[in-house]
Design a protein around this nucleic acid. Structure first.
Length: 157
DNA sequence: GCCAACGTTGGC
DNA sequence: GCCAACGTTGGC
């Protein structure tokens, strides 16, 4: 059973264009236990990912990606000079994991946060819950299908 | 275990 | 740049 996810990235750090260029990217730097648990316990190879640009002029979903690996230890937690270094983590008991994220395609247009907030059809959507800050969050099949249908608005609206 | 202080996220 | 809403840390 394939599942669906949303992953946030600041475009100034790593954008959908960056992902298109590299093809596959080890998603390092997740330092939140709930987000880690989604990657470790929820994600399977082939799962679909909504790629979201955060902390930018027009926050929103800009592309599609997919899970390309099982979760494995994030090497940056062991690198002293990395921003993501965690002195409390050891290779024997790594605290932080990542998955490889692969490019699928860019969307024809950005589906903005404002638009997503406006859509009651999305129901209880993790992205627009008050106070949400998770960078990795689940998307239901229904939400996935609805969001992709928004990509090309029908005429006459 | 409580909770104040602090750091981060991310929209605006 | 502001600030609300979190999560984490550490004293007690």
């Amino acid at each position: 059973m394939s599942r669906h996810w949303l992953m946030k990235s600041e475009p100034e750090e790593f954008s959908i264009d960056d992902l298109e260029r590299v093809g596959t990217e080890p998603w390092s730097g997740v330092r939140n236990y709930q987000a880690r648990n989604y990657m470790r316990d929820g994600m399977r190879i082939g799962d679909g990912i909504l790629f979201y640009h955060s902390n930018c002029a027009e926050p929103g979903i800009v592309g599609l990606a997919e899970v390309r690996s099982e979760a494995y230890p994030d090497p940056s937690q062991f690198q002293r000079r990395s921003d993501y270094y965690d002195p409390a983590s050891t290779p024997e008991a790594p605290r932080w994991l990542l998955v490889d994220v692969g490019f699928r395609r860019k969307l024809a247009r950005t589906i903005t946060l404002a638009e997503l907030k406006d859509r009651d059809e999305l129901g209880d959507f993790a992205l627009t819950r008050r106070g949400n800050r998770l960078s990795v969050l689940p998307v239901t099949r229904t939400q996935w299908d609805f969001i992709l249908a928004l990509e090309k608005p029908r005429r006459g609206r």
